[in-house]
Design a protein around this nucleic acid. Sequence first.
DNA 1: ATGAAAGCGCTAACAA
DNA 2: TTGTTAGCGCTTTCAT
Lengths: 341, 341
Amino acid sequence: MTQSFRMVTARDVAEIANVSVSTVGRALADDPRISARTKSRVKEVASRLGYVGNLPARQMRGAKSNLIGLMLPDIRNHFYATIAEALSDCCSTNGYQLALSIANDPETEARHVTELISARAAGIVIVSTAQPKRETRDLLNNFPHVQLLRRIDNYNSAWFGINDEECLCEGTKHLLELGHRRIAYIGGSRELSTGSARRTGFRRAFQEMGIDRSEAIEIFGPPSYTQYGANAIQELLNRPNPPTAIITGTIRVTQAILETLHQMKISVPDDLSFVGFGDAPEFKWWGPGLTTLCMPIEDLATTCGLWFLHHIDSGKHTNQQHSSVAKATLTIRGSTAALDR
Amino acid sequence: MTQSFRMVTARDVAEIANVSVSTVGRALADDPRISARTKSRVKEVASRLGYVGNLPARQMRGAKSNLIGLMLPDIRNHFYATIAEALSDCCSTNGYQLALSIANDPETEARHVTELISARAAGIVIVSTAQPKRETRDLLNNFPHVQLLRRIDNYNSAWFGINDEECLCEGTKHLLELGHRRIAYIGGSRELSTGSARRTGFRRAFQEMGIDRSEAIEIFGPPSYTQYGANAIQELLNRPNPPTAIITGTIRVTQAILETLHQMKISVPDDLSFVGFGDAPEFKWWGPGLTTLCMPIEDLATTCGLWFLHHIDSGKHTNQQHSSVAKATLTIRGSTAALDR
DNA sequence: ATGAAAGCGCTAACAA
DNA sequence: TTGTTAGCGCTTTCAT
């Protein structure tokens, strides 16, 4: 019982159909040189035996893989699930197949990248970890790939992301205009290009409105975000002088805070104004409705996928400077209100 | 610019290191016959050139693929995202790589299954569509695979699922015990084994409690569930004699209903009791908290993954009758209350 | 301790 | 219209 499934080969088909292996190959590829009679006979036999062409063997003959690697930090995050689905659609439409790798740390990331390259995937779409290993960079720089959302400078490659800085700036201005000053920003790691850009946007809002930032609070997230958002918000609200408004910089933190605020029975927006990040469906009906930074994440992923697949198909070099920025915008709902003193 | 990336081969390494191809292969595989000096030289050259072994070529020599195909109907569903993550972890730990296919209809499903088999993946974990094509069944029956959640009888294979019937029965009894009689069940397609079993559970609750089912309402879902849940609930509540309680049989329907009830400003549980399906994080804080059927979906996926990978690794025939059922249980929160007349 | 050669399943160039 | 043959990159005899 060691080798349970013997795959049918072109040779098996050839023997039964009484033709040569190459005739089988040509018949199944609808080569015009093969007679209709032979063709149909071969096809009949192939289908009867359940013959499925061996892609690895074809790859050795120069055929390109149908595999597109997608590296994500977390698939349970609605954000990334949307990306996976959009890209999967994209791949599917263009005859590719998505290989999903979930890697949260540089070691796993390096391993998965190596495996994808070893499998000679057609290309890799990567949402990078914060500090990829040197090895990973070297590998990717010699392999078709494109960066999504997070941008690592040392990769000499195309990047598709959102206007992180702009959108956090806009959200923060909204709070400032409502009169808030003690605003807390709870963001992701500054080691990520996204985390860093969002923090800059937060600060720029104060600057552009000519408001002193001394009352502002900044908290940055560790990799394990599950508990972090909850802890951060609890600590903040227990301060002698708690913030009157909060703005977040990652979806997971936003979700954790929604849950915590509900548990703590904080009244929003009366006791606290809150601007979330991302646009999971439940944000619409959380309490008074969540004012949030909505991202056209599906568009972004689709744009990225189409661009990438097109370049791969046309054999162009994809590792070139190219960047595309999708615009996130503020959607105002009930969770933010003017500060009354 | 047609062929941008030339992959480094063992031969390239051999030439530079001044050894033969076979020596390169042995050195990199740490074959004891190769001298330490040669080994280190070869390894140095290989790493300097960025050599990554060609898996397709190895597969031709009998190496098995590191690819595990996962076929899901929808990755944005929290349910399936959890499965994907759990399986991805599982694969990662055991040296495999997840290939994700999203297929909602039998044609796409057939195409993806064919592609996975063509790539000679190590195996396929499938959440089947309702009516798979004959072709798909034939292919799978000759290929290592395992069914998850939905069970198609004609596949002669292992299955890992949940106690669909039991759990819907339990949820329905909860409502009956609270005095409800005009209970509406909004479920998934009866063409799915899961949808059918859940309906049976709904009915059995009445039967076992000796309660007449004439007031019960049953509605079944089409494939495109996004709008369906919303429509169903609106239609139900506009009836002259609307139900006093609702129980659902799919996560997506549950989520759609949560949103619709919120929009319609229906007061839960005062105007309507509601038992949801699944356990997305937001169920905890929706309105009064959602009474829901919680499923140990992560455990299920992990169990399935471990079993499957173990069987693949040990070369055992996986297409055997084997079934494993994980127990879902009712979690009572605020969305269900006794009916006062 | 290392090299030469065969062969995995397939396609394409060359023969017939 | 079809068959024969070479070779993709690798591992594994077999030979040295």
